[in-house]
Design a protein around this nucleic acid. Structure first.
Lengths: 139, 139
DNA sequence: CGGAATCCTTTCCGATACTG
DNA sequence: CAGTATCGGAAAGGATTCCG
């Protein structure tokens, strides 16, 4: 896979392109196109939330994944982490301006999933019934 | 995993909620909040594409992941697969109406990643510099 | 050309135990 | 309360080989 000078110039013009495997945009896409990221960001839509609140809101998330996701989002500048040194300690998470710019996008994914699940389920039933012997199906 | 009649009724009332671990919407979210799904759907934005075209457009995707993603999207009713029996065989993929309804959403994620990568990268630099000894960082 | 099938490595992720 | 650290199983995903 060689790249011509013309392709190089084309890339400069269009800046970042997620279709290119080596592009940083591809890696960022990989990070934000994530279930936990979507749920965490939308859970912070209405303002700051404590760790425990997030944990309860996002049912079934393990503490490991929640912490890991929060750290990643903090590092990427999408949310802030504020520690209040009390007993017991209190930690609040809040979206940054950058995080809020992503919010409508991930919120629309979540909304789409919730509003189209019925159609998807019936499509699956139809697909599975149509040909029990199809490409991709074992035995 | 048994569900009581009360739980069934509760689900009917609140429809689907991706925050609930058991909810089908959570699983659907898990499927569509995916790097390959985003790239495949956006690659089909301008009309039908052949398998080989998709493979070249989405640089770095393995044949296994591409086929697997396409099969999943076909089963979920987001795209159609059309085989033309020639030599060699020709296979085209095209978005369905359902798939097109998801398209603007995933396109906006891809666009966000491409347009905000700079801000995210500088946020990472700042985070990493600020405290080389921070929560989550080894030694 | 457009896959399927197999093998094998990497990464994800949950469970558990411990800490300030 | 809000984590960290570690371990092991499960799943994702790449490379390779073969096929209609």
């Amino acid at each position: 896979m060689t790249t011509t000078a013309a392709q190089q110039r084309a890339r400069q013009r269009q800046a970042y392109d997620a279709y290119l495997a080596e592009c940083p945009a591809r890696q960022l896409l990989n990070r934000i196109a994530d279930k936990w990221v979507t749920l965490v960001l939308t859970a912070l839509a209405d303002g700051p939330r404590r760790y425990g609140e997030l944990s309860r809101t996002i049912a079934g998330v393990s503490q490991k994944m929640l912490t890991q996701t929060l750290r990643g989002l903090e590092r990427d500048g999408l949310l802030t982490r504020t520690v209040t040194a009390s007993v017991p300690v209190r930690v609040d998470y809040e979206l940054t301006a950058l995080g809020r710019s992503l919010l409508p996008v991930v919120a629309s994914i979540k909304a789409w999933a919730e509003s189209h699940i019925e159609q998807v389920r019936s499509a699956r039933v139809e697909y599975d019934q149509a040909g029990p012997d199809r490409p991709g199906r074992p035995s």
